[in-house]
Computed example of a mutant assay.
Amino acid sequence: MARLLKYIATSTAALALILPVSSAAEPYVEVVHDQLDAMLAQLESSAEEADATAISLETFEDLLASDTGHSYEVSTEAESSYAVVGACDTDCGDLDIIITNAAGETVAADETESDVPVILFDSEEAATYTVTANLYNCAADTCYYGVRLIQLQAD
């Protein structure tokens, strides 16, 4: 599992640089969908090169005001690798994602100043994790964002 994540992490390092830029006339929801779909496609390509498969499991979407967050629970399988990716609309300057276990301990986080966070993590046992999306630097009253859970399976 760790080798698969290391390979995918290396090939997705420049992911934010290749995301499609949507026109201003496009609805904010479509912007987020396009970014999430582009990240899934990049992970699918990277996984295929590593003889693995990327499977989109769940997508969460909502509106948030700047300096607020929302949490979601996700279930994972034992001995599995996952990616959690996020995207927000063109009014958003920073979207952070934090994953915590049932004890409230941080398992993984992307708190860099970016509006396209990407987290890779292993789930050693079947568990429920909390995925928290925190939005900062929203130029509007609210910004639209999405978070997607993707399972990475070795073939």
Rank of each mutant, 00 (worst) to 15 (best):
Leu4Ser: 05
Ser71Cys: 09
Gly146Glu: 08
Val21Trp: 00
Pro20Tyr: 01
Ala25Val: 12
Leu95Gly: 14
Leu95Ser: 13
Asp62Asn: 15
Leu152Arg: 02
Val85Pro: 09
Thr53Ile: 10
Val131Phe: 14
Ala126Lys: 08
Glu111Asp: 13
Ala54Phe: 05
Thr128Leu: 03
Thr10Cys: 00
Ile55Met: 03
Leu36Asn: 05
Leu40Pro: 03
Ser81Arg: 00
Lys6Tyr: 07
Lys6Pro: 01
Leu17Cys: 05
Val147Gln: 06
Ser80Asp: 02
Val107Cys: 07
Val131Thr: 15
Ala109Trp: 02
Phe60Asn: 10
Ala54Lys: 06
Ser81Glu: 09
Arg3Gly: 08
Asn137Ser: 10
Ala133Lys: 13
Asn134Glu: 15
Tyr28Lys: 08
Ala24Thr: 08
Ala87His: 01
Ala83Thr: 04
Ser114Glu: 10
Tyr144Ala: 07
Thr76Asp: 10
Met39Trp: 00
Ala109Arg: 14
Glu113Gln: 07
Asp122Ile: 01
Gly86Arg: 11
Ala54Ser: 07
Gln35Val: 02
Ala102Glu: 15
Thr76Ser: 13
Ala139His: 07
Leu57Gln: 14
Pro27Cys: 07
Phe60Arg: 15
Asp67Trp: 04
Arg148Ser: 14
Ser123Gly: 09
Asp89Pro: 03
Thr132Asp: 06
Pro27Gly: 11
Ser56Gly: 14
Tyr72Cys: 01
Leu5Asn: 10
Ser80Ala: 15
Leu149Gly: 06
Asp141Trp: 03
Cys143Gln: 06
Ala38Asp: 08
Leu120Tyr: 09
Glu44Asp: 09
Thr100Ile: 08
Asp34Leu: 06
Ala38Met: 05
Thr132Lys: 13
Thr53His: 08
Ile55His: 05
Ala83Pro: 04
Thr68Gln: 12
Phe60Ile: 11
Gly104Asn: 10
Thr12Leu: 07
Ile18Glu: 07
Leu95Ala: 14
Ile98Lys: 10
Val85Trp: 02
Thr100Trp: 02
Thr53Gly: 00
Ala52Gly: 15
Val118Cys: 04
Tyr144Phe: 15
Glu48Tyr: 10
Ala9Phe: 05
Leu152Gly: 04
Glu124Tyr: 07
Leu19Gly: 02
Asp51Cys: 00
Glu58Val: 09
Thr142Arg: 15
Asn137Arg: 08
Thr100Glu: 08
Ala83Glu: 05
Ser75Val: 07
Glu58Ala: 06
Val116Trp: 04
Ala2Ser: 09
Leu149Cys: 01
Phe121His: 12
Ala103His: 11
Phe121Gly: 11
Ser56Asp: 12
Asp67Phe: 02
Thr90Val: 03
Thr53Lys: 13
Ser56Arg: 14
Ala140Pro: 04
Ser80Tyr: 02
Ala50His: 05
Gly69Asp: 12
Asp91Leu: 14
Thr130Asn: 12
Val131Gln: 14
Ile119Ala: 11
Ala14Lys: 10
Glu48Gly: 06
Leu120Met: 07
Asp110Phe: 11
Glu113Val: 10
Arg3Ala: 04
Met1Pro: 05
Thr10Met: 01
Ala41Ser: 11
Glu48Met: 09
Tyr28Val: 08
Thr130His: 09
Ala133His: 12
Thr130Gly: 10
Asp51Ser: 08
Ala103Lys: 14
